[in-house]
Design a protein around this nucleic acid. Structure first.
Lengths: 357, 357
DNA sequence: CTGAAAGCGCTTACAG
DNA sequence: CTGAAAGCGCTTACAG
């Protein structure tokens, strides 16, 4: 009462009903359209609403009553910037938004700092969420899982975090990467190097390429990177390997290091299309032609129209994957139970690979 | 009662309090930390919470009581994909997220279809929002403004939508673009063309470059594009003008058209760095060197490390602008009144411009 | 088809 | 420092 003048309080359904001379419950029915209301009553309510400048039922009150927030969340590890620089992540996010269209379900963006992942919990604790997705290649374990599970918020992931309470939609990364490698082997390549995504969390802070050996693969923080390395090694057990931040610059720097070897590799298999784009750039810098002097492969199947070649890569169908993630979140929010499921992928053969000369 | 078994109901504060043998109000104080509670009471409550697996107060109920949703929204016109392909938009969004860090305020992403902008209202009507930003170069008028104003949700924009109820943080686009043009003129250029962002909504659907004349400038749907065209014309009243979708491909196609003229322009002034990148690509295709054969300017000041030159452009400081938008939303959500304010910018002189030969 | 009542889960004055 | 009460704005059985 004493704060009435502090801000023009919004009118409530109660006031609208009073003005229309009907019960609140009737007025509610008019807005939700869930019950039968005579045209006359409905008209009276609508007029009263217009007169009072009532813009519809308060979403918070409705959420409390219905027990549903009408919002799902997307958790991205690291800076948004960093994550969305990758067109694959962008496609995934776009797919999720598309899947949410005409659902009246909102999408909340949650960035989780790599250096202080616990901080995200406080943020999340304050927001109502019906379901959550971890769409990006995140780390194997994540403290927010415990918090969300405690709140009963269902979760979906694409391989990470690894937890029974997270429903997974995963590409068989190992098999897919092995398929690419087999294609390269079948072309006749024997000196083949591999550029992997970062294998552990600390590496993200560093940001420079780092050679690694088989021993490190076991203890990787990132399941996707790990599985892809395994796929590569299934075909080329002895090829040199290096990690790089997933960016054009990262791929370029890593390729520069790999191509300094003598004899240099005739093919480089990377774990991301952006990495492959960097390799191509490095090759150009060195005056090497792709694919004649160097075969290059990617992973993801994103659209990079400005590349001088079309990549041989694994098409993960990022948009479709995002749409499916959205569907899964919506189903989980409705209380349905879901099982893990495989995400489709296929080998795309472009002209970035050819037989070695 | 009859649905008790349908889903494991989350424990409530009431249950925690009962178990701890304290009043609900006391238990509430323990979680919010807003009142003085003895250590013993607090401990009892925490233990009870742990035993019941209580993950903290329900955010929806808290929001209803507090009258604050803890969520602000960002409205992007067009596909998310489309919007975020532009590194400037990405930087802005990243800045907004950064500005929201440590605030326990969530960020809701709202995509508003260009073909059916009214559809966004239904989506928005269902979600609780404390404030909203229109960060991108959107159209002059937007139906969601009316809805949000009706709900009392404060809004900030960067020049659009144009409405008294939207607080604006705007770069003086006309002055900034004129400053770039003056720099080019001072270098000695006289045959100078302009590539503008789309001038009207319909154009977004088309997606191909389209020459336009001064008459069309008056009725542009997009204030930013309009003001930048005016800035160009302040210096080069007779230069040829063309619109293009804001992308590398768009800039490339537009430049191809402009460079077909005889005599061809010695400089092209664009309204976005990505457009400028496209111009450089088109120049390369034609065997023209930048800046020797063709001077090129951008707008935005985004990081394009892979460009062969550094762009002469207007640095809008996208990240900082995003952070400021976040601050403004938070202030408005607190009930503060804000006035329109200018956003800083500065001319950055790179090596994409030089005197004509 | 309409209305009166209960209650979603919490927080905040207010008394003690 | 602790507790009992009111109420945030709505929706949903339930009676009529």
């Amino acid at each position: 009462m004493s704060q009435v003048d502090q801000a023009a309080r919004r009118p409530t359904l109660k006031q609208v009903a009073a003005r229309a001379g009907v019960a609140v419950s009737t007025a509610s029915l008019v807005f939700s359209g869930r019950g039968p209301v005579s045209d006359e009553m409905a008209a009276r309510v609508r007029i009263a609403a217009a007169e009072l400048d009532y813009a519809g039922p308060d979403p918070i009150a409705r959420s409390l009553r219905r027990g549903r927030a009408g919002v799902v969340g997307v958790i991205g590890e690291g800076t948004l910037m960093q994550a969305l620089r990758d067109p694959y992540a962008l496609g995934l996010l776009d797919g999720i938004m598309t899947g949410l269209d005409n659902t009246s379900t909102g999408l909340l963006l949650i960035a989780q700092s790599g250096s202080d992942p616990e901080a995200a919990i406080d943020q999340i604790a304050g927001t109502a969420l019906d379901a959550v997705a971890f769409p990006l290649c995140g780390p194997r374990s994540n403290p927010v899982v415990e918090h969300l599970a405690g709140r009963g918020v269902p979760m979906v992931g694409t391989g990470a975090p690894e937890d029974d309470r997270v429903v997974q939609l995963t590409v068989d990364n190992r098999a897919a990467q092995a398929e690419v490698a087999a294609h390269v082997r079948d072309l006749g390549h024997t000196r083949v190097a591999h550029i992997a995504m970062p294998l552990n969390v600390a590496e993200y802070a560093v940001g420079t390429p780092r050679p690694f050996g088989p021993a490190e693969v076991t203890c990787s923080d990132f399941p996707d990177a790990q599985q892809r390395v395994r796929g590569f090694r299934d075909v080329f057990p002895d090829g040199p390997m290096i990690t790089a931040p997933v960016s054009i610059e990262g791929g370029q720097a890593a390729a520069r290091a790999l191509l300094a070897a003598d004899p240099r590799p005739t093919a480089i298999i990377t774990q991301a299309d952006t990495l492959a784009a960097g390799v191509i750039r490095a090759a150009e810098d060195l005056g090497l032609r792709v694919p004649d002097d160097l075969s290059v492969t990617g992973f993801d199947g994103v659209d990079l129209p400005w590349l001088p070649v079309t990549l041989t890569t694994i098409d993960q169908g990022g948009q479709a994957q995002g749409r499916r993630l959205a569907e899964m979140m919506l189903a989980l929010a409705r209380g349905e139970k879901l099982a893990d499921e495989p995400a489709p992928y296929r080998l795309l053969i472009g002209n970035s690979t050819t037989a070695p000369r």
